[in-house]
């Protein structure tokens, strides 16, 4: 019985092409959305120059398995899962994890817009890898090369494309996990859970303060930007823009430093002694343990398949 040989190069090319197309589409979608947003918002086009700022816990009111899962177990198991995913070397366990992550994303009722924004954010870096790696990866014995007619200098190494596609897939898996991980409970609860898992309290508090003041400063920056625009500033490449932006940032730092002082004094007035009072209480039920066991088992199976999959294949009679 002769096995049917499918050329690996076709599969690899197809996968790379699909990944590239998906990333380009998402990037383009993100760009279009940003433009549209810029027209709708009052200070026109400032979202373009200042960058949009998404909120983390918008979909916390929805209900799903992930919303009901104890945040401590959710964070610990999903982070273990992510670390296992990034250490995989072979496609079958990786695709298994991709399926799981996509399933998790769907189960957590992640809005498509938010998932695509996360994927779009990575598209630049991953596209760079997908384009650069086939060209720069050195030739090894057994590599498949792709020659383009009429371009004898440019040889594409398919192993490089496969490597880049594998990295991109890992990044996509972790990105898909992020929304179920973060936006299924309020950010303060996530941080309380992270603290229970052993991260120093002071870092969690800093993150909580930052998550609040990022939006305050974002608002401030928008107002300053409108003021600059009204006074005739236009963002172009050139010396004047750099000088104006330098002063703009300097002013932002002066204002934020003054605000920092006021915030700190207000915190002291209200009795801040180094810790925020918290009402978050965690209660582990058997269901939480079961879900954690499910994710860690899945990660373990993927890892075993990855490391010892070839052994199983060699042992099995049909090969």
């Amino acid at each position: 019985m002769t096995p049917i040989v499918v050329p690996w190069s076709w599969i690899v090319l197809g996968l790379g092409g699909v990944a590239g197309t998906v990333l380009i589409t998402l990037g383009a979608l993100g760009l279009r959305r940003r433009k549209r947003h810029g027209i709708e918002s009052v200070p026109a086009a400032d979202a373009e120059a200042l960058g949009a700022l998404p909120e983390l816990d918008l979909s916390e009111t929805a209900s799903s398995v992930f919303h009901r899962w104890d945040p401590r177990f959710k964070i610990a198991s999903l982070i273990i899962f992510s670390f296992v995913v990034v250490s995989l070397h072979f496609w079958p366990p990786l695709l298994l994890c991709l399926g799981l992550a996509a399933g998790a994303s769907a189960a957590a009722r992640t809005p498509l817009r938010r998932a695509s924004r996360r994927l779009g954010a990575m598209s630049g870096f991953l596209l760079m890898l997908l384009i650069v790696m086939p060209v720069t990866v050195p030739f090894h014995e057994g590599d498949r090369l792709l020659l383009i007619d009429g371009l004898p200098i440019l040889t594409l190494n398919l192993r490089g494309l496969e490597l880049a596609a594998r990295i991109a897939t890992k990044a996509v898996v972790v990105a898909l996990i992020m929304e179920p991980l973060l936006s299924t409970c309020p950010f303060s609860v996530t941080l309380a859970a992270v603290h229970r898992l052993g991260v120093p309290l002071v870092l969690c508090q800093m993150l909580l303060l930052m998550y609040r003041y990022v939006f305050v400063f974002r608002h401030e920056v928008q107002r300053m930007w409108v003021g600059m625009t009204v006074r005739g500033f236009r963002s172009r490449s050139g010396w004047e823009t750099m000088a104006s932006l330098g002063s703009f940032l300097g002013m932002l730092f002066v204002r934020s430093m003054e605000r920092t002082q006021r915030v700190h004094e207000a915190m002291l007035c209200r009795g801040y002694t180094g810790a925020f009072p918290t009402t978050v209480r965690f209660d582990a039920a058997p269901r939480d343990w079961a879900w954690a066991a499910f994710w860690i088992t899945a990660a373990g199976v993927a890892f075993i398949l990855d490391r010892w999959g070839s052994v199983f294949r060699a042992l099995s009679p049909i090969s």
Partner: peptide, 26 residues
């Protein structure tokens, strides 16, 4: 200084917002 960490956090938010500003380049 331990008391300064909340201040650093608030300043960090300002740096964060500042890093979102795009500088046109060609």
């Amino acid at each position: 200084n331990g008391d300064d960490l909340p201040k650093i956090a608030v300043m960090t938010s300002a740096f964060f917002v500042a890093s979102l500003v795009h500088v046109p380049l060609g």
